[in-house]
Amino acid sequence: MERKRTVHVLDTPFSTVAWPQISQEDQDAILELLCSLLAPLGAHRKAHVVPSKGRRRKQKLLSAGEEGSPAVPPAPDLAAHVDVGLAQISRELEAMSSAKVEAPPEGTSEANKVPNRPPYSVVFIARSGQSSAFHCHFPQMVAVASSSRPADQAIRLVGFSAKGCDERLSAVLGIPRVSSIALRVDAPQTKGLLEFVRARVAPVEIAWINEAQSAKYRETKIEPVQTKVGPARVKRAKVS
């Protein structure tokens, strides 16, 4: 006869945060617009940025008296408004979440004010090319970073689920591996892409943020769950 026992667990509806649902057709269209936008950055990198050959090569050139490489022309203006990499984007989202809007002290001149970088408008993640452990934190971070902004200006999170998206982004940017890209609000030439994304991608929602803002008391819910008692546990029970 199968034995069961009752286990009490805390019941909460706020355990997970879902990624925005985006149709595959819309994902493909967004990827095309993004690659078209980033293509000039990759072209500049391929034409003017020489891959590093290490310190030893540089030291040999200096000891031989050879002149360094010619001056590299500046990158397109878009480069200053694009962040690439999980670590960089995670740090920026954390800073946006913890930043407090404070009025400067009276008498502070415009020259003494500390400039703040514009927040993100869209974050793109290639989800199929890596483990979920690398990007599962993004829905919560994006939602928290957008909590103080109007709904129509919230940061959009776009997850590409098709295989090969990371390889295509890498090829466009001329970087060995690209899995995440973020665009800032004032990024040039992004109006069409941003309008398309905002029209088809809903903001990330976290139920516990709305619950916390309501400031209502909620009682702790303890849910009894029936679980099976394994053979080893049954044997120990008979011995005792």
Rank of each mutant, 00 (worst) to 15 (best):
E167Y: 13
P224D: 04
P105M: 00
S52Y: 14
L31C: 13
A182S: 08
D26G: 01
T6F: 11
A171M: 11
S97C: 06
R57Y: 06
S180P: 05
T12E: 08
R233Y: 05
A199R: 12
S109D: 07
D26A: 13
A126C: 14
Y217V: 13
L183V: 05
R198N: 07
A143C: 12
R184T: 05
H8Q: 13
R45D: 02
D166H: 12
A99G: 00
F134C: 07
G164V: 09
K58C: 04
D186C: 06
V84F: 07
Q27E: 15
D83V: 05
E195Y: 11
A80W: 04
E67M: 15
R168H: 11
V142W: 03
V144R: 11
P203K: 10
G192A: 10
H44R: 08
W208D: 10
S146C: 11
P20D: 03
P70I: 02
R184K: 11
W19Y: 15
E223N: 15
R56Q: 14
S179I: 03
R55K: 11
I22P: 04
P105Q: 03
S147E: 10
M141T: 06
S128Q: 09
R5A: 07
R55T: 10
A237N: 08
S97E: 08
Q130P: 02
F196W: 07
I181E: 05
A64H: 04
L169Q: 08
N210I: 05
I206T: 09
G164C: 08
C35G: 07
P73Q: 01
A171Y: 11
P150C: 13
H8Y: 15
G129H: 07
S147M: 10
K4H: 14
K4W: 14
L37G: 09
A133K: 14
I22G: 04
E205L: 07
K216M: 08
V122F: 02
W19P: 07
A182C: 05
A202L: 06
G68P: 02
K113D: 00
Q24W: 10
